[in-house]
Computed example of a mutant assay.
Amino acid sequence: MRTIKALHQAQNAPIADLTTYRALPTSSVGHLDPFLFLNHHGPQVYPAHNQGLPFGPHPHRGFETVTFILAGDIMHQDSGGHQSVIEAGGIQWMTAGRGLIHSEISSDEFKRAGGPLEILQLWVNLPARLKMTEPNYIGIQEADIPAVALDEGRVTIHAVSGEWGGTVGAVRPLTDMSLATINFHQGGRLNLTIPAERTIFCYLIRGRLRINGQETRMRRLVEFNADGDEFQAEALTNDAVLLLGHATPFNEPIVSYGPFVMNSEAEIRQSYADYQAGKFGTWQE
């Protein structure tokens, strides 16, 4: 069984009126290669006639964003011409690659009616060979994400990417990255084999779990040592929800500044120059 190195508490980091907890990076952990960043927005309830999410047009280069909509919705638009509204249970997988501009705001209907909102956004790195790949966007509703029921229905894996219980996830990523959200009923048990050389990303969204023998609570990121290939989780409460992923680390230099993640300071400077020169596409309102 792989041993736990540390439990990291997500830190309160509100954005305007949006309740936000930053799980990565924090004062206790910088990144878990190739996982770079995780913001947990909500849960909260928006009133009717609200302003919605505050993420208007902004650029990215050199990595991917994976957004999990647990409640509410997100209206996506980018300079590559992609548009969609993804609702609760769905995901967005955006490859920034060589650069694009995008916005992530609430739909007109959500801003009119309000309601519950809870969203996670994970940033995952791209290796040097793919930093300048063509940008892409995939929006997938809940009905199109394969669900894998285990332990007599007490555990349900929503397979976003990779293979889970013999089922292939909805997204075929550029790198060998497995991601899923997992729902537990109390007493539900999950046993997985994850090779020791792969980085595990394990964030408890809700509830309490016993993970590899250690209890953890909501809004905690579990960091593992690279010393075993057995992963176990047991639900200590009903309605526990886990974000779980694993990937081979790139072991490359990581230089990030604002919305860009590259391998050197020179590449960051070039990213800003390219953005200012209009090389990230044209924004269309």
Rank of each mutant, 00 (worst) to 15 (best):
L192T: 02
F201A: 05
V45P: 05
A71Y: 02
P34C: 03
A235K: 09
P146H: 06
R129T: 15
M132A: 12
A180F: 03
N12D: 10
Q284S: 12
F250A: 08
R220C: 07
L130G: 13
P127R: 13
P253R: 06
E64W: 07
A240H: 01
G278T: 03
Y203G: 08
T216N: 13
D151S: 15
P54N: 04
V66I: 15
K279D: 05
R220L: 07
G90E: 12
N136V: 06
Q141I: 13
A48V: 08
Q77R: 15
R198D: 03
H49C: 06
G166R: 02
A96V: 07
H185T: 14
E134G: 10
M177I: 12
G62I: 03
N212C: 06
E267F: 05
A273L: 06
V29W: 05
E265Y: 06
N225M: 11
E64C: 09
G80H: 12
I194N: 07
G99N: 10
W93L: 00
A143E: 13
R210G: 08
R206G: 09
A233K: 00
S27K: 14
S28Y: 06
I182L: 01
G139M: 03
M75C: 12
G278V: 09
E285V: 11
R208W: 01
G278M: 06
R206H: 15
E265T: 11
T167G: 04
V155F: 05
S84F: 03
Q9W: 01
G97R: 09
I105D: 00
E87N: 15
M75N: 10
F110E: 08
V241P: 02
F63D: 02
N238R: 14
G30K: 13
G278R: 07
L120D: 03
P43Y: 03
G258V: 13
L179Y: 11
R206W: 09
A240Y: 10
G245S: 04
S28R: 13
R2P: 00
A247N: 00
A88D: 13
I119R: 00
I4C: 00
Y275P: 02
L150K: 13
P135F: 01
H49F: 14
E234M: 14
A266M: 10
Q232G: 06
F201Y: 12
K111D: 06
F201E: 08
N238I: 08
E109N: 13
H82K: 09
A13L: 10
G169F: 01
N251D: 11
K279L: 10
L70G: 03
R219V: 02
L243P: 04
N50P: 09
M177D: 02
A113R: 11
I138V: 15
V160K: 10
G89C: 11
E118T: 08
A196R: 12
L192C: 05
P116F: 00
G56F: 10
G245E: 01
L126M: 15
I194R: 12
V160I: 14
F224T: 00
L209Q: 04
I211H: 03
H60G: 12
G80Y: 08
A143V: 04
R98E: 12
A10H: 03
A235D: 08
F35G: 05
